Simulated assay, not measured.
Amino acid sequence: MNSDINKKLQEQFLYQGLGFCGAITASVTHELNNILGTIDQLSGLLEDLALTLTQGDVATGNQLTAISDRIFKQTARGMTLVKRLNTFAHFRDDVAAKFDIYDAVENLLALMKRLALLKKVELILTKPAEEIIVKTNPFSLLEIIFLAINRILPCTKKETVIEVVLSKQNSDAVITIKSMHDGTLTRLSDGGYLRSLISHISGNTKESFDDVYYNFELKVPIPER
């Protein structure tokens, strides 16, 4: 009986995890498509300038420099996104890894930036006062944070922020997600899959909200050195 339950849980983790990967990848590739479109337009401008030169017109150095700078910035932006996506993909490699929680969450929030901006909300991460190393399933931890933010986003007041605060409390790493809600929010932890994920990483959560603010707190044990 237990083996059947575990098998179903593993299948659910795989299925939901693919959805998590798909949402992040879709958002990033949309951004990359915008970058490539901009570079394509700038390349067209360079081609037009080259044509005017063959006809005897003089392209100013300022024009060429401006286009070159814009191509450089878009290329750098694209390379950063690809590097972040690659880092995210490798969090799937190890089910029990030691890692700096700030680096992992910072990378995730950067990849989620577009999803938040579509809702006119900004994601802000507060860096902890000291390095916090945890040992757990990094992919599952990030999926919990993604699900929490994704659930909160539609209920967050527009033109406000969702703040993610990382801290250390006794022998736990604490991830707190705070926002101003619009009054339509329901309790996040009602979802059975989310509870399974939290249990999977040996974490525990606490929620609280009033007429204005919502707080979601996730605690993850810090391994002994």
Rank of each mutant, 00 (worst) to 15 (best):
L123K: 12
N137I: 04
Q63Y: 04
L115D: 12
L64K: 05
T87W: 05
N107L: 14
Q41C: 01
D48T: 06
E131W: 08
Q63F: 02
V105N: 09
L111H: 13
D48Y: 05
L49Q: 05
K73C: 00
D40F: 01
D100W: 07
I67R: 02
L109Q: 14
H90Y: 09
V134K: 06
K83C: 00
R84M: 09
Q63D: 08
S68I: 01
P128I: 08
Q63M: 11
L85M: 10
A129M: 08
T80N: 10
D48G: 01
S68L: 04
L142K: 10
I67H: 03
P138G: 13
L118C: 00
E143L: 11
F139P: 00
F139Y: 10
K127Y: 12
I144A: 11
N107D: 15
P128F: 09
A76H: 07
G61S: 14
A89Q: 09
R84L: 11
T136G: 06
R77Q: 11
R114E: 05
L118P: 00
Q74P: 00
M79I: 03
F99R: 05
I132A: 12
L85P: 00
A96L: 15
A50M: 11
E106Y: 05
M79G: 00
F72P: 00
L42R: 04
E122P: 00
T126R: 13
Q74L: 01
R84G: 00
A66N: 11
E122V: 04
G56I: 12
L49C: 03
A116W: 09
F72R: 15
N62W: 14
E47C: 02
V95C: 01
L85R: 08
Q63R: 08
L142S: 10
D48V: 06
L53D: 13
L49D: 02
N137V: 04
S43K: 04
I67G: 02
L125A: 15
K73A: 09
T80Y: 05
E106S: 12
Y102R: 10
P128H: 10
K98Q: 14
A110V: 06
L117S: 12
L125Y: 13
E106V: 03
Q74C: 02
D40E: 09
L46T: 04
K127D: 09
A59R: 10
V134G: 03
S68W: 01
P128Q: 11
